[in-house]
Nucleic acid binder design. Structure first.
Length: 469
RNA sequence: GUCCCCUUCGUCUAGUGGUUUAGGACAUCGCCCUCUCACGGCGACAACAGGGAUUCGAAUUCCCUAGGGGACGCCA
């Protein structure tokens, strides 16, 4: 019965409130983005709220740049949040006050141990082959015996025996013996609250009902449950999802994938492709692969979350990306190209728009799209071919095209095929030289599409130059 | 070291005791389409970590082993 509680966890009439709580010590990396996506999807699916909390209590490592990167990353992915973001540090005093209440109630206590003493404790525990933890030496000691000149920390008076049970939405029921856990620090000796305390208080105060996060937090959860118990609060429902690993199966590193989401944008990925790819990492809906955000909102529940770690597959992400590029609006793609290229004249923008259908089905990334787009934006001057036969073919093409009044792809197709038939040439013999004259390249979109996009004047002009006149 | 989690094709996964000769997608390799390159279509290759147990029957339940990952901070 205590397997995956799955959607049972959502049956109550209570409104679903999820959150994403990154610490602003770096960019929004791919793992964080997936966590955000899942929480966002959950909130949108149940028509609840998706909140954002910046966990900036580590003053030394938190930066404004990172905060901006996180905001921008989420926006780029299309993950909008409800209400103003909560900055955890601004609530520090409140967290500390609550911890002191716990001390007053005898549920927490001051500890005067030095870092050296703690280090010795851990060493000793390791020697004895037990879990390295604080030994509770100040748990029941009279503070009056405290050494002078030491600022104490506040520790939770955690239960010494029994066990703490977590009914995880993803992992199922997990039980840990309380003897494995120690009296965690709630308030540091400098008077600032720890992550463990702040998370609990903020999730409670923000009314968070469901926490989906990486399973590196799984063991923290038992400690947090003990804090909830000390306060007498109900815990949210937890779902711990497996981490994303690098291509080599090891923890994601900067070398392979732990990049900021903006890096994916710069590599030429569309946000919906990144989301789709992330969605399929650890979540599935039967055999469906291409899933729009709209569809994802409809389908996403915690029922189909996987329990095992996965790796990011760039090739699959590229395939997904090429699909989304192929199906993207041409004006939108033009806008993306215009961010790559400094200035594109109105005439060339028009060309680009006419030729976009052919470009976009050949691009795996927007970078490739932009590379190919230069066929239409560069001022290419063809040279005169040395081969007489080719020259002759070009002359025939020129003559045929000059007579064409209605410049449509269909007519161009017909006109050039008739020419090939009349000259008893395979169509390739006509298309390849023409392709070179028009674009200077061997690989391009279809020849009729290019002629159409360039227009009659420009097409004939390039042919004319190639003919040496 | 202690505790926790995980283990289906190379990768992402479907699969919740019989409908499965284990399905799909990416990658790879063929073929078709074809004005190049793509796209698209068709097909091939390819997996239940190992061992026990339960059962008429197990990828699916239980146990053990192995491998991988995570946590053990006055970081979050």
């Amino acid at each position: 019965m205590e397997n995956r509680s799955s959607s049972e966890a959502f049956n109550s009439s209570q409104k679903v409130v999820t959150r994403f709580a990154p610490s602003p010590t770096g960019f929004l990396h791919i793992g964080g983005a997936r966590t955000a996506l899942f929480n966002w999807l959950l909130a949108r699916h149940y028509k609840g709220k998706f909140l954002l909390r910046i966990e900036d209590t580590d003053r030394a490592r938190s930066t404004q740049e990172a905060v901006d990167a996180i905001f921008n990353g989420l926006k780029w992915l299309g993950l909008d949040w409800d209400e103003d973001p909560v900055f955890q540090f601004s609530r520090a005093q409140h967290h500390v006050d609550l911890a002191k209440n716990l001390v007053d109630q005898g549920k927490a206590y001051y500890c005067y141990c030095t870092p050296e003493e703690l280090e010795a404790m851990r060493e000793d525990a390791k020697q004895r082959g037990v879990s390295p933890k604080y030994n509770g030496m100040w748990r029941d000691r009279d503070p009056k015996t405290a050494p002078a000149g030491i600022n104490p920390v506040i520790r939770l008076k955690a239960p010494l025996d029994g066990e703490t049970t977590l009914h995880d939405i993803v992992q199922g029921t997990v039980i840990v013996a309380n003897s494995q856990l120690d009296d965690m620090i709630l308030v540091r000796s400098d008077g600032t609250p720890t992550f463990m305390l702040s998370v609990v208080v903020d999730d409670h105060d923000m009314g968070v009902t469901h926490v989906v996060r990486g399973d590196d937090h799984l063991t923290n959860t038992f400690r947090q449950i003990q804090i909830y118990n000390a306060f007498g609060w109900d815990t949210p429902k937890y779902g711990h999802i497996p981490l994303i690993h690098g291509p080599d199966g090891a923890k994601l590193s900067k070398r392979h994938g732990a990049l900021g989401v903006e890096a994916y944008r710069d590599m030429g990925f569309l946000p919906e492709a990144v989301c789709n790819c992330l969605l399929r990492l650890g979540w599935s809906h039967g055999n469906d692969e291409i899933i729009s955000m709209q569809q994802a909102i409809e389908w996403f529940t915690t029922d189909n979350l996987g329990k095992s770690a996965s790796r990011l597959d760039f090739q699959k992400m590229e395939k997904l990306n090429s699909y989304y590029i192929k199906n993207a609006d041409n004006k939108r793609l033009l806008g993306i190209i215009m961010k790559f290229q400094k200035q594109i004249s109105d005439e060339k923008q028009q060309r680009l728009l006419l030729g976009m259908n052919g470009l976009k089905q050949r691009a795996k990334t927007t970078i490739e799209l932009n590379d190919m787009a230069s066929i239409y934006t560069e001022d290419y001057t063809p040279s005169v071919p040395a081969d007489k036969a080719i020259l002759s073919i070009l002359k025939d093409i020129y003559d045929a095209l000059r007579e064409l009044s209605d410049w449509t792809e269909e007519n161009l197709d017909h006109c050039l095929h008739v020419l090939a038939a009349n000259k008893e040439l395979s169509f390739g013999k006509i298309a390849q030289p023409l392709r070179a004259v028009l674009s200077g390249r061997k690989i391009t979109p279809g020849i009729f599409e290019m002629l159409f996009a360039f227009g009659k004047d420009e097409s004939l002009k390039r042919l004319n130059i190639a003919l040496g006149s």
